[in-house]
Design a protein around this nucleic acid. Sequence first.
DNA 1: CTAAAGATTGGCT
DNA 2: GCCAATCTTTAGC
Length: 193
Amino acid sequence: MALLSAAFYKRDTVQVARELLGQRLVRVWRGKRLSGVIVETEAYLGAIDRAAHTWNGRATERVRSMYLAGGHAYVYQIYGLHFCLNVVTRQSGEPEAVLIRALEADSPLKAATNGPGKLCSALRIDKRLDGESLRGPTIFIERARRSLPNEEIGISPRIGVDYAGEAAEWPLRFFWRGNPCLSRRERRSKDGA
DNA sequence: CTAAAGATTGGCT
DNA sequence: GCCAATCTTTAGC
């Protein structure tokens, strides 16, 4: 399977977040291949986005890898317990990223991957992978299929960013509609979440 | 230096 | 629905 190209990641963050749906995240750990298909993502839009770690131009040590060129990993620890994996987008110096929120795990992976912390635990992703290339030997993303058609992509506000004021309402969460491995169950009501 | 919160999760009422 | 776990980062003084 072909890796997603370097150019794929250097585009508009929302576009990358949508097109990552259906592609396969692969982690090579102790000679084993741990992988799953991406079914849920969120876009984080840099300085203008109060929900993003790089809001208002923040450039602290933690977020250094968000300033790398698109196609690198940004991994951070949350609540002292969990790690979250992000795909850095756009050009170097443009600190935007896509949070990977859920996977549909490939066999023989057994652990749950329906949440950003859970998928990192299942794929053995931690701070050591922060800043790594996503076209490297230990972690990469393969094209597993064509982009999903629009009607299969659900859209909602992002999860867990209530502190972000107006940005908390922005429709920047994308998910594969009806997939059983989403971090939250898809509601059938009109709000489309 | 000190304090508070967090892009979460799992367990319990 | 509510809350604690657990610790790094960040904001504030």
